[in-house]
Design a binder for these strands. Structure first.
Lengths: 343, 343
DNA sequence: CCACGATGTCGAAACGATTTTATGTAGTAA
DNA sequence: TTACTACATAAAATCGTTTCGACATCGTGG
C-alpha cells in the first residue's frame, strides 16, 4: 500500500507531458521553468497528490533533513520541554526529528546512536546518560553532534546546558540567607556531568561561608521519586536532621515530600525544601515548592541552532570551534522555604 | 562530513576482495555465503565501521522501517508514557519512531502527516486533535494508520483507546456512592472523541440514579491548568456550589486545586476532587488525589502491535477488518474524595 | 542572413543498496 | 571422459530523485 500506489516524478512527468527534470525543477522551485509549464506541472502534481520520495532525494543529495535526538529519560518533563524546543526549531528549518529514549542505559544509548547513523541523520542532539563514556568518539566523522544537559567529561564539544554550577551556588546562598546551616543536598547519579556541576556549586557556597560541608548529608539518588523518598526517610532518622533540603531534581523532591508527610514533619516550619527543575504542579503544591527553573525550551532551541551551524560548516568543509553555551536559570521562591526555626 | 567519509558496500567489497552482492548477503545474513568468506567480510565491515545506508535500502525495498507518531500535546504526560510504549515496542521490531507534536493545531497536524508521508514511513500512529476532521481520508492509500486516544467520529478505523465511557461511568458512581449529588464535571475540548465519550459516561451514571444532570455544572475546559483554575473560581462563586468535582484531565485538576487553595476551601472536607489521568505527583499531593489511571504504556504498545499487523496485511495485499481495542482503566481512590459533609 | 548569447527544456548519469540472472567451479554419476 | 547437479559468486538492472551537459528555440545585433 505504502508504495504500491505511490506516484513518482515519472508519472507526473508523463501526465504533464514534460520531462522528469522539469518536474524536479518545479518541485524544488528552482525558478528556471517558464510560468505556463510550471502551472501545468503543478496541476498534475496536485491531481496525483504527488509528494516526493524523501529517501530517494536523500540518497541523491546526501542529506536526509532528519535530526536525531537521544535523551536519558523521556519521562522527565525537563526533556519533554527540551524536545518541544528542538521540534519547533527543527520544523522551522525543514527538519524532522527522530526521538530516542535511552532510559538511562548506556548500551541502549549506543544502539540508538548507531541506528541514527544508519538512518544517516544530518545531525544528533544527545543528552548522554554517561558522561564518562567517550560517546563523542563514536559519532566523530559520522555526524555533527551537540550535547544537551549532560556533557562528556573533559572534552571539547558543542553543548548547550544550564549554568548548573552558578544556579546551585545561588540556591545554597539563598538557603544560607534564610539562616540554614544544616543543609542536605540530594543529587542525581554522579555519572551525569549535571549532577557533578551542581554538587560543586553547592559545595562552593557552603565553603565560602565556612559552613562545614557535611559529607553525610550529601546523598546520591537516581533522579526518581523512590530514591528521594528513601533518602528522606533515613535523613530524618539521623540524630541531627537537616533544617533544609535541596534536591537536584524535581522528582526526588516529590519523594522527599512524601517522606515528610509520612513522618508528619511540617514544611516549611521544621524543614525547608527546595528543588532543581520547575514543574507545573510545583506552584499548586501545598506548600508551593521553591524551585530553580531552567530555560528548558530555550535549551532545545539553542541546541538545534548550534547543530544547524555545525551541519552547515561540515558541508562547507570549514572547521568550527566547539562552542559551550551556558544558559541562566531562575530561582522561584515559594512557600516551601522559610527562615530557619529557632529551637 | 556526514556522507563524505561514509563507506559504502563497494568499499567493503573492495577491502574484502569480494563482490558487492556478497557483502549484501552477509549484511542481511541470508546464510548463502560460505563461513570463511563471511568472516572476511565481517572483518572488513567492522574495520571500516560500515553501516548500511538506510535510505538507499528503503528506496530499493520500498520500506523505511520508520513509524510516525503524531500527538496532540507532548507536554501531557499521558502522551509521553504512550510514546514510551510505542518506542519500546517499535525498537523490538526494528523500527524507529518519528515523533511529531501537533500542539492541538489541526493545520500543524496535517502538515506533520504530509511530512511523514514524504518520508514514506511504513505506518502512522495518530492522536488526532480534531475528531471531526476526516483525517483518515488524508492518509488513506498512503500508509496504514492506527489512531490512539482520540479517534475520528463515526468512522471504522484501527484504534486503541481507554474505555472512556465506562471509566467515567464508574467514577461518577463512586462519587454518588459517597453521597454526592451536586457533581461538577470539567471536560476537555469537545472536539476530542475522548472528552465526548467521558462526558457521556458521566451523564449515564447520573441519569441512572435520577440525579438531575446539571448543564451549568458541566463545563468545557481545554485540558490546561488555567482553564481548570478559571472554571474552579466561577464554580465556587455560584450560589449552590458542587460538593464534588470531576476533572476529565489531570492538569485541569491542578487548576481546580489552585482555585480551592486560593478560596480557602478545604478538600475533601467541603469538596471532593477527582481526576482522570494519574500522575506521579498525584499520590504525594496534600491531600493525595483520587484519580483514574489509564493503561497508558500499554496503549502505545498495543497500538504498535496493531499497526504492524496492518502493515503486514497491506504488503500481503490482504484486507483486514479495522479493529477497535478498548483498554480498561483503574480507579485509584485516595484522600481527595470523601463522603459528602452534612450541612 | 548569419552568428550569438539567453532562455527554457530534456536526456542520461549518478547516489547506495537489493535482487535477479548469469557465470564459474567442483563434485558426482553414467 | 562427459554431462549434469549443486553451489558460491559476479554482473547488471532497479528503486526515485537531482543535476550536469546538451540541445532547441528565439530575438537581437552585426
Amino acid at each position: 500500500m505504502t508504495k504500491r500506489n505511490a506516484y513518482t516524478m515519472r508519472d507526473v512527468a508523463r501526465l504533464a507531458g514534460v520531462s522528469i527534470s522539469t518536474v524536479s525543477a518545479v518541485v524544488n522551485n528552482k525558478g528556471i521553468v517558464g510560468p505556463d509549464l510550471t502551472a501545468v506541472v503543478q496541476k498534475a502534481i496536485t491531481a496525483m497528490n504527488f509528494s516526493p520520495h524523501a529517501g530517494a532525494r536523500g540518497l541523491r543529495i546526501g542529506k536526509t533533513n532528519i535530526l536525531g535526538l537521544v535523551v536519558q529519560d523521556i519521562t522527565n518533563p525537563f526533556f519533554v520541554e527540551a524536545l518541544r524546543g528542538v521540534e519547533d526549531e527543527a520544523i522551522k528549518h525543514g527538519y524532522e526529528v527522530l526521538v530516542c529514549n535511552s532510559n538511562d542505559q548506556p548500551d541502549l544509548e549506543l544502539r540508538h546512536l548507531n541506528a541514527l547513523y544508519t538512518q544517516r541523520v544530518d545531525g544528533v542532539l544527545l543528552a548522554t546518560c554517561d558522561s564518562y563514556a567517550a560517546r563523542q568518539a563514536l559519532v566523530r566523522d559520522r555526524a555533527p553532534i551537540v550535547f544537551i544537559d549532560c556533557v562528556p567529561m573533559k572534552a571539547e564539544v558543542n553543548c548547550v546546558v544550564t549554568d548548573n554550577y552558578d544556579s546551585c551556588y545561588n540556591a545554597i546562598r539563598y538557603l544560607i540567607g534564610l539562616g540554614h546551616e544544616r543543609i542536605a543536598v540530594i543529587s542525581g547519579r554522579l555519572v551525569h556531568s549535571t549532577s557533578i556541576a551542581r554538587v560543586e556549586g553547592c559545595r562552593k557556597a557552603m565553603q565560602e561561608v565556612n559552613l562545614p560541608v557535611l559529607e553525610e548529608s550529601l546523598r546520591e539518588g537516581d533522579s526518581h521519586i523512590e530514591s528521594g523518598y528513601r533518602i528522606g526517610l533515613t535523613l530524618f532518622q539521623s540524630p541531627d536532621p537537616p533544617t533544609a533540603i535541596f534536591t537536584l531534581n524535581n522528582r526526588m523532591a516529590l519523594g522527599i515530600l512524601r517522606a515528610l508527610r509520612e513522618l508528619q514533619i511540617p514544611c516549611p516550619e521544621r524543614v525547608s525544601v527546595m528543588s532543581f527543575d520547575d514543574a507545573d504542579w510545583a506552584e499548586v503544591f501545598n506548600p508551593s515548592l521553591t524551585t530553580i527553573k531552567q530555560p528548558t525550551y530555550e535549551i532545545g532551541k539553542a541546541a538545534v541552532e548550534l547543530l544547524l551551524q555545525s551541519i552547515q560548516s561540515a558541508s562547507d568543509e570549514t572547521t568550527l570551534e566547539p562552542r559551550q553555551i551556558l544558559l541562566k536559570s531562575t530561582l522561584c521562591a515559594r512557600d516551601s522555604t522559610a527562615p530557619v526555626a529557632k529551637s
